[in-house]
């Protein structure tokens, strides 16, 4: 079990898997301050950021006090000086998947947050340029959501060209 940074917001649940590493579960309001405390504590690199849609898998294991929500943003931080990794998972409700951007702490999270917005539809407050990055700009929906219709073809009722 790792020691949390000295100035980390209190009341954050921490869980450690057998060989899956350490995860921290801050609330949405304390997420930004929590990550910032890790940045000051020597975690120089934001290795990865992605979003997960837990729509069809609600019964996942979470520590006590963390209520499962549909979306989760997963941040993997890396400390070069201490050779440690930590994973931060923040729960986001279905109706309002919105969280503070890490851009001002880790500028390198910019493209990853854009990807999370593009593919899962999580909004990041304070991101300088939250636009689609992989999908075309006029694309509808977010493909990595579990309720996204794969292979769905929109039906055209008018102006569809005839066979000849």
């Amino acid at each position: 079990m790792i020691a949390l940074p000295p100035n980390a917001p209190s009341g954050v649940a921490v869980a450690e898997g057998l060989n899956t590493g350490v995860s921290c579960f801050p609330s949405r309001s304390s997420y930004h301050a929590f990550v910032a405390s890790f940045r000051e504590d020597g975690f120089e690199l934001c290795a990865d950021l992605c979003a997960v849609d837990y729509l069809t898998h609600p019964g996942r294991e979470l520590p006590e006090g963390v209520s499962p929500e549909r979306f989760e943003v997963v941040v993997n931080l890396l400390s070069l000086s201490r050779k440690e990794r930590v994973r931060i998972r923040v729960q986001l409700p279905e109706m309002d998947p919105r969280v503070d951007s890490l851009f001002d702490i880790y500028p390198g999270s910019e493209a990853m947050e854009r990807e999370a917005y593009d593919l899962v539809g999580v909004l990041f407050d304070g991101h300088p340029d939250l636009t689609r990055i992989l999908m075309p700009e006029e694309w509808e929906g977010h493909p990595l959501r579990k309720d996204y219709g794969v292979g769905r073809v929109p039906v055209q009722f008018k102006e569809a060209p005839g066979p000849r």
């Binding site: 290795a47 990865d48 849609d53 898998h57 996942r60 997963v74 993997n76 890396l78 990794r85």
Partner: peptide, 28 residues
């Protein structure tokens, strides 16, 4: 469970984050 594993690829840290839901396919 969920796990993040990283290796050094020729281009840098290549990580793989898998969420498993107990089935035969990765959940994410």
């Amino acid at each position: 469970g969920e796990v993040y594993s990283a290796i050094e690829s020729p281009r840098g840290e290549l990580g793989c984050y898998i969420v498993a839901d107990g089935g035969p396919k990765p959940y994410r």
